[in-house]
C-alpha cells in the first residue's frame, strides 16, 4: 500500500511566491505556512532573484514547481536543465519537485506552454519511463500536475484521470493535484469534475493547487487571476475529505493583488481545509472509512457566462519573471 502523500509532510496552506510581494514578505514575515517558487525563475546564476530566494528560504519552507520539464515531449528534458533543477532543489531543500503532465517542446523549438498529451498507452509509456528516471536523478519525489486544457485529441482512449492515475502508480510518483485545472478542463471538455476528483489515487496527492480563472463563455482560461470560485473550493473540500491533510497552495499570477488580498485567499482555503478535515475526523470517530465521502449528485453547476473582466492577454504559467521589466518600477 502506498504511504499517504508518499511519506511527505503536510506543509499546511501556502502561496505562490511572486515578485510584487517580495518586499512585503521580507519586511512583515506574514503567517504563511510555505511558499512555492517557479523553478525556472530561479535557475539563474545570480543577481536579485537568487538573493531574494535565499532571504525567503531562511524564513519559510519552500517547494519547487516547474513549467519547462515537458516530460511528454518528443525530446527528453536536457541533462543541463535537470541538473539545474536538482541544484535548485538542493539549495532550497525542496521536499519534492513538481511539474506537469504535458509536453512543451518539439523539433528543437521550446513552445513555453503546457500542452496536453493524448491519453493513450503510448503517452503513458513515455511519461512513466521518463518520470522514474527523472525522480531518481533528482533524488527526491517528483509530482506531476494535471493541466488545464483547451483541446481534446481524437486518439485519446481514456479519460484524463485514468491517464494520470496509471502514470502515477506505475512510475511511483506523486500527484500535484490542481483543483482549478480539474474544473477548467471539466468545463472545457464537458466531464464531471467530481468523477475526476474521486478517481485519482488520493494517497499520491502530495500538494494541491487552487487558483482563479477567466471565463470566456465558450471556454475557461486558466489565468490564475482572481480568487478561486466557490465551486472550485467545493471540489477542494471533496479532495481534502478524500485525501486527508495535503499541502495546499494558492496560485495568483494575473492582476496580482496586494499581499493582504493574497493572504485572505490563503485563509479562505485554510477554512475550507479545516472544515473538510473535521468532517473526515467525524467519520473516523464514528468508525466509518474517513475517505468514504457521501455521494453528492447535482452538487455542482457549470456556469457558462462570460466574465465581465477583460480577457487575459495570455496565461502566464507561473507568474511574471523576475527580470529587468520589474527592476525600475519596484
Amino acid at each position: 500500500m502506498t504511504r499517504s502523500r508518499l511519506g511527505l509532510p503536510d506543509l499546511g496552506v501556502g502561496a505562490g511566491l511572486r515578485v510584487p510581494h517580495y518586499r512585503d514578505i521580507l519586511q512583515r514575515q506574514p503567517a504563511v505556512d510555505f511558499f512555492e517558487v517557479i523553478s525556472e525563475n530561479f535557475m539563474l546564476a545570480g543577481g536579485k532573484p537568487r538573493y531574494h530566494l535565499e532571504q525567503i528560504a531562511e524564513r519559510y519552507p519552500l517547494v519547487q514547481h516547474g513549467v519547462s520539464l515537458g516530460i511528454g515531449s518528443p525530446e527528453e528534458p536536457a541533462r543541463e536543465y535537470l541538473t539545474a533543477l536538482r541544484d535548485l532543489a538542493d539549495r532550497i531543500k525542496s521536499p519534492w519537485v513538481s511539474d506537469h503532465f504535458c509536453w512543451c517542446r518539439a523539433g528543437g523549438t521550446e513552445l513555453h506552454d503546457l500542452l496536453p498529451l493524448p491519453y493513450t498507452p503510448e503517452a503513458i509509456e513515455r511519461v512513466v519511463t521518463r518520470a522514474k528516471r527523472i525522480q531518481d536523478f533528482l533524488g527526491r519525489p517528483l509530482a506531476l500536475e494535471n493541466t488545464s486544457s483547451y483541446l481534446t485529441y481524437r486518439e485519446s482512449s481514456m479519460p484524463e484521470w485514468e491517464f494520470i492515475s496509471e502514470v502515477a502508480e506505475r512510475a511511483d510518483i506523486g500527484l500535484m493535484f490542481d483543483v482549478n485545472n480539474v474544473y477548467v478542463s471539466a468545463y472545457n471538455h464537458d466531464f464531471d469534475p467530481y468523477e475526476f476528483v474521486r478517481n485519482v489515487p488520493h494517497e499520491r496527492i502530495v500538494q494541491i493547487h487552487l487558483a482563479g480563472h477567466t471565463n470566456l463563455g465558450r471556454y475557461l482560461l486558466d489565468t490564475h487571476s482572481g480568487p478561486a470560485l466557490d465551486i472550485v473550493l467545493d471540489l477542494y473540500r471533496e479532495t481534502i475529505e478524500l485525501a486527508g491533510p495535503v499541502s495546499t497552495l494558492i496560485e495568483w499570477d494575473e492582476d496580482i493583488p496586494p499581499l493582504e488580498e493574497l493572504l485572505a485567499e490563503v485563509e479562505r482555503a485554510r477554512a475550507v481545509r479545516d472544515g473538510a478535515l473535521a468532517a473526515r475526523a467525524r467519520r473516523s470517530a464514528l468508525g466509518l472509512d474517513a475517505s468514504a465521502v457521501p455521494a453528492r449528485p447535482e452538487r455542482y453547476r457549470i456556469v457558462r457566462e462570460q466574465d465581465t473582466r477583460r480577457a487575459s492577454p495570455g496565461w502566464k504559467q507561473g507568474g511574471p519573471r523576475e527580470g529587468v521589466a520589474h527592476e525600475e518600477r519596484s
Partner: peptide
C-alpha cells in the same frame, strides 16, 4: 486530430494555443 465540441470547433481549439504562443 482534435474532437472539438459543440462550443469550440477543432480548429478553434488549436487556435487557442497558437494565439497564446
Amino acid at each position: 486530430r482534435f474532437t472539438g465540441n459543440e462550443r469550440v470547433a477543432p480548429e478553434a481549439q488549436l487556435e487557442t494555443y497558437r494565439e497564446q504562443f
